[in-house]
Amino acid sequence: MRRETLIWTTLMVLGGLALLGRAATVGNGRVYIRAVTVAEVEGVQVVQYQGVPPSQRSEADVSLSWPRTIGIWISALCTLGIMSFVLGDNPLYKLMESIFVGVSAAYLMVAAFWDEIVQNLFRSLIPGLMRDSFLPGLEAGLQTDYSYLAPLLMSGMMLWRLAPKGAWIARWPLAFFIGATAGFRLVSYLEADFTQQINNTIMPLIVYAADESFDIWGSIRNVLIVSGVLLGLVYFFFSVPHRGVVGGLARGGVWLLMITFGASFGYTVMGRIALLADRLQFLFDDWLWLIDPTMQRIGM
């Protein structure tokens, strides 16, 4: 066995033993639930289960939830499995990645089915059947909207892509999709990101404060914004060679963009660290019970 493998194996065995010891003594990672009766119909109670803080575990209607407790431990395993990638590609990471791809694709399918295909397509085409089954809240007397046969037909054509022959059939709904996207984006981008942005940039270069005194900082700010936008646009204007005056202005544009990208880098770092902090907080708080920032286990 390689020295490195031996060290990691020893560390993992020791860590596992420590975890088991902690789980046996402290009981970390346990989740408690409360059964809530939301309705009672013909003597049958409709019960839902809501998670409660472990500090309420001794209350009458609160009990330990094994599925959720196992869930917390599986969550921790998933978190550590993905994190193991920092040590290099490994089977545990690949396993977690495979599970993620499968669950993710199916979850999207399920969401699309219930939230759009049932809610809008089936509701419009077979309202009676939907009212008696999945959508009892539908208004009575809703008539079939035959215009929805068009998206139904296009959906079938789109799924034809999975068939071994006749892939061209899927081009028709795809063309509809692409055409619609082009149509609404053309208008909206020109309105909000072109004309409105120009409008936002038309601002006074000499600014006066409310008491009619000269506002030097406000003036500098506006001059910098207007000239900055112009310099940036000159840089992106490639129809004219970047030489002479244009070259000088484009160079100013490069400087401005460098400052912009520096700011973006700073914000990106901030975001990524926040995501890591969230995962570590899950491990330390929900799983290991090393910290209790939200006082979920007060008095335990």
Binding site: F184, Y189, E191, Q196, Y267, G271, R272, A274
Partner: peptide
């Protein structure tokens, strides 16, 4: 939301977003 709601219909809006 800015492109298709706030700008064309002049609806007031605020946002919270990722660092990126």
């Amino acid at each position: 939301w800015v492109l298709y709601a706030a700008t064309p219909y002049n609806i007031s809006s605020v946002a919270g977003c990722t660092g990126v």
